[in-house]
Design a protein around this nucleic acid. Sequence first.
DNA 1: GGCCAAGTTGACGCGAACGTAAGCAAGACG
DNA 2: CGTCTTGCTTACGTTCGCGTCAACTTGGCC
Lengths: 140, 140
Amino acid sequence: MNEEEPRSMSDELMTIRQMCDAFEVTPRTLRFYEARELIFPERRGQHRLYDRRDRARLTLILRGKRFGFSLEEIRQLLELYEPGGTNKAQIAATIAVGRQRLADMERQYAELSEAIVDLRAQLSDAETRLAAASRETITG
Amino acid sequence: MNEEEPRSMSDELMTIRQMCDAFEVTPRTLRFYEARELIFPERRGQHRLYDRRDRARLTLILRGKRFGFSLEEIRQLLELYEPGGTNKAQIAATIAVGRQRLADMERQYAELSEAIVDLRAQLSDAETRLAAASRETITG
DNA sequence: GGCCAAGTTGACGCGAACGTAAGCAAGACG
DNA sequence: CGTCTTGCTTACGTTCGCGTCAACTTGGCC
């Protein structure tokens, strides 16, 4: 019997395979992130089961990676996205990490803006050269 | 005799050491980039000498790295920044690569913008929690 | 000539982030 | 019952971007 549990559909638990399909990662990757303590799926018996929280974290992990952060940097940042501890010192530390990442990202944002302008200019030049080369081919 | 060549000062040739100091990289890094054909310093006898062109390329290399591009991707992109070949097909290919990188960067730019907004919100929440925790410490 | 500093070429090593492969368990199915 | 699929663990392999080390040459200086 293939139980098509109606439940909340987009909510609740997913198997590792469903996760891999949804996020375009391999099982190896998910287990690796778990070993590095970036996600904490339940264990129904032997198998892993991923809930909404795990999916949210994975989304943030993949995003962080695209910005060039290491898994360790991402792990620290993830604490900011969880209620986590009510400990004062720990909250403060997490905030400090978050501010650092924010500063990194803002710098990257500004630099990216510049680089895009540069690249557009170079592309425009190259397109001009291409047009010139084409004219020479035609008329020459 | 230590020739303090007046020349153009900011112009012309630099040794590998001067390059390392200027760009905060190691000699190993510069030789590695050369082996990967990202820069092409002259060889005065045995030693390498880097000119303005090499410095410009190195600047672009380091920038590209910060955006998460591989050295190979950067190498291809660098062709766009050089007059290079007058060959029509090659110019077109270089433009295609450039457009791809530009698209990557524009996507990254947009996503970074989102991520910054998210992160700011999380930081703000955490700061609120910290303030609450502080009040409890004081009054409780 | 002797020596040091700077530079060069291999060659091997390393950490991050997985890939890959081997071997085992456990439920589903005919 | 056997087999298939899914997933698990363990462990070794791989790529990228360099670091590190050894051994050699070269030029300057006394």
